[in-house]
Simulated assay, not measured.
Amino acid sequence: MILQATFLFISGAEIAFILFIVIMVFGADKLPEIARGLGKGMRTLKDATNDIKHEITKTAEKNGIDTSITKDVKKELDKVKDDLDDFTGSVKRKF
């Protein structure tokens, strides 16, 4: 069974219709301003999220909480990947 990925369960035709309505309501000359405002808002949200993550990590390290678990997991995954590459190296098909 093949599942089609959709963005927020909206098809392409519905997105086109929404864009048409937005252009009709705000006008084509206002769209760049709206897009710029949305971009700035998303950038601010991303920066705030990164600041919060940084503060949580700094506080955890200050209180002696081990934050290196992701590094350990990545190291283990890399080792498994290297072992798998070594094992399948001679079996891989050349295209």
Score class of each variant (00 low, 15 high):
Leu3Met: 10
Gln4Gly: 06
Gln4Leu: 10
Phe7Gly: 02
Phe7Cys: 11
Phe9Pro: 01
Ile10Tyr: 05
Ala13Cys: 04
Ile15Lys: 13
Ala16Asn: 09
Leu19Thr: 03
Phe20Asp: 06
Ile21Tyr: 02
Ile21Gln: 03
Val22Gln: 00
Ile23Thr: 05
Phe26Val: 08
Ala28Arg: 08
Ala28Glu: 08
Leu31Pro: 00
Leu31Ile: 15
Glu33Thr: 10
Ile34Leu: 15
Ala35Tyr: 07
Ala35Met: 06
Lys40Trp: 04
Lys40Cys: 00
Arg43Gln: 14
Leu45Met: 07
Thr49Leu: 11
Thr49Glu: 13
Asn50Ser: 11
Asn50Arg: 15
Ile52Gly: 00
Lys53Gln: 11
Glu55Thr: 06
Ile56Glu: 04
Lys58Trp: 03
Lys62Ser: 10
Asn63Ser: 09
Gly64Glu: 02
Ile69Cys: 09
Thr70Trp: 10
Lys71Pro: 00
Lys71Ala: 10
Lys71Ser: 12
Asp72Leu: 09
Asp72Ala: 12
Asp72Met: 07
Val73Thr: 08
Lys74Phe: 07
Lys75Gln: 09
Leu77Trp: 09
Leu77Cys: 05
Val80Glu: 10
Val80Gly: 01
Lys81Leu: 12
Asp82Arg: 13
Asp83Met: 08
Leu84Val: 07
Phe87Asp: 05
Ser90Asn: 09
Lys92Gln: 07
Lys94Trp: 04
Phe95Glu: 15
